[in-house]
Write a protein that binds this DNA or RNA. Structure first.
Lengths: 336, 336
DNA sequence: CTGAAAGCGCTTACAG
DNA sequence: CTGAAAGCGCTTACAG
């Protein structure tokens, strides 16, 4: 059915080696010959079979991005950075979605083992040291995005500092009781953000009160959903006395939280986390994560390692930035 | 460096055929032998090379989804449907992002030619009849999602009817001047939605007024962005007299539009399009597109065709549903 | 500039 | 239940 290099060689009256050279941009082919091969190939609808090429050449010119795609905007922004960084390079990008958290490690390790690509980008995937050590044994070029390890190159984000900045902002305004609209406490980003929250409290000599850490009931996507934010905010609104302010652990959750506040006609200053595009449009104060940059930089790192496998492992940590809009301010400040 | 089937065969004291059988779940291997091979493979960190497997077996067990990933939520929902549909099947899914619109066709055709997978899902990619005819010559199993053609299986959505329903809703309330917050007029979804809008007008004997079709200045992503919605709504607010209502062509645009309305303290009833998760949380009336179902159904279709290539081409069209929340209602109705 | 030939790492009838 | 061997569709020294 589909043509092979032999069909083209025969039809063009050359050897398969010559056809191969034409398709591999080799310089040493007589222009006449090249033209003829190209013409025949076009007519017969020929295109090299990537599997055979990969096998024979041991090159794939392919990078695989492994990510929990469902995490939406975050993923999209990182992807933009990756693609822009790849634009100049002779690499193609494939994406494999890593599904429900449970067997994420298995999904990733199985994919790596298959040697689809020469380099891998692991985005927002958090594994234990033991798991990462297992991965490192595959000895394949790999860069972590939004996670940190000294076994691999990584481009991560200082979650702890981001949470500190948000909490510190409120504390400096004189607020004492600051609730955290949290998510799955065992997840790495939450762990780090809670740590930053605690550090800010301690710097201001405010005792930590566990009851102020509030989680929604829905735990889909580790609780990083609108619904979970909505549920958690309703719990906060039911507290007596009301907290002075809320540090919300993601913009997505904040969308749900805002709905709860509006329904109950309550106003509590709120700062969240991520700075998704939507944050600007709903007046959300938030901690900016440079997702695009992280994707871009990680891809650069990976490609450098591809060119030079002996490079020392390098870890890059991006710094947060607090973006203040209306949601963190008092109601009268908002209205004016 | 990395082990081959020969290494394992030698270490286990069997032939490579036997190793191959073990890894292909063939039944006819003595349990003892299987155990031994598996043990050796585990120790040596062996895994079959997919490229070699694909080449030798002519099977890939792989489906490729081609989509403009940047379109965010829509893509995510469709992907969820695809993955759920694939869960029971012995297929893996890879995703290739199709970048800026300009050379989308080239990107797609190049990817198809490489024969990565045995089946392809083309999501939200709109090509001309001529282009689709070219693709059909590759003679590869392919299902269109969110597009229609009689050359391929497809699962699409009735955009025209959706726009009709939204417009009709306003007209039945007695509104006469209904603006359209539009996007790139040459894009297929916009073309169909404008058609539905016009049909509703004509059924109510309202003349079409071109000035009521308003577009933002920013044309990124064909104008389906918050920014573009914000810009367009500001233009609408500047109109004199103000339109009675606005049909907005996407939820994303509606987020920007709402910001403009709030800033200018103007209220105009608005219905948008998509029913993204966020719509529920910001009280947006909108036309629901069953994105999850479309992804799910399209994947089923594709797999059926893989099993039976002689199947007649089938086109499935999903029907819209109007979801009324607060944004389409009068201000006093909203407040109560 | 071009061709013959070995090899990439597998699968799969075929034979036993 | 197992092995020897041909073949999948390419690339790439090597020789000319």
């Amino acid at each position: 059915m589909s043509k092979t290099i032999y069909d083209i060689a025969k039809a063009a009256g050359v050897s398969i080696a010559t056809v191969s050279r034409v398709f591999n941009q080799a310089e040493n082919v007589k222009p006449q010959t090249r033209k003829k091969v190209l013409k025949v190939a076009e007519e017969m609808g020929y295109h090299p079979h990537v599997y055979a090429q990969g096998l024979a050449s041991k090159k794939k010119n392919r990078i695989l991005m492994l990510a929990p795609v469902m995490s939406n905007y975050f993923f999209t922004e990182v992807l933009r950075g990756i693609q822009d960084s790849l634009a100049e390079e002779n690499f193609e990008l494939n994406i494999v979605n890593i599904g429900r958290k449970k067997d994420a490690f298995k999904q990733v390790s199985e994919t790596l083992k298959k040697r689809w690509a020469e380099g891998y980008l692991l985005v927002s995937l958090h594994f234990s040291d033991k798991e990462l050590k297992t991965l490192s044994r595959y000895d394949t070029p790999l860069c972590l995005v939004d996670d940190f390890s000294n076994l691999f190159d990584s481009v991560s984000f200082n979650n702890e500092e981001g949470a500190f900045m948000a909490t510190d902002y409120f504390l400096k305004k004189g607020y004492k009781r600051i609730a955290v609209l949290s998510a799955d406490a065992t997840s790495i980003p939450i762990r780090d953000r809670i740590a930053g929250y605690k550090r800010a409290l301690s710097e201001h000599d405010i005792p930590f009160d566990e009851k102020l850490i509030v989680v929604g009931d829905n735990m889909e996507r580790d609780g990083f959903t609108e619904l979970s934010g909505y549920q958690a905010m309703n719990k906060i609104i039911a507290m007596d006395p009301l907290p002075d302010a809320v540090f919300c652990t993601s913009d997505t959750k904040a969308v749900g939280a805002k709905k709860a506040l509006e329904e109950q006609k309550v106003h509590i200053p709120i700062i969240s986390f991520d700075n998704l595009t939507i944050a600007e449009y709903i007046g959300l104060s938030t901690v900016n994560q440079p997702m695009y940059d992280m994707g871009f930089r990680a891809t650069n790192k990976l490609i450098q390692r591809l060119h030079n496998p002996e490079l020392r492992i390098s870890n890059e940590v991006h710094y947060p930035e607090l973006v203040i809009r209306s949601s963190s301010e008092k109601l009268n400040e908002v209205i004016t």
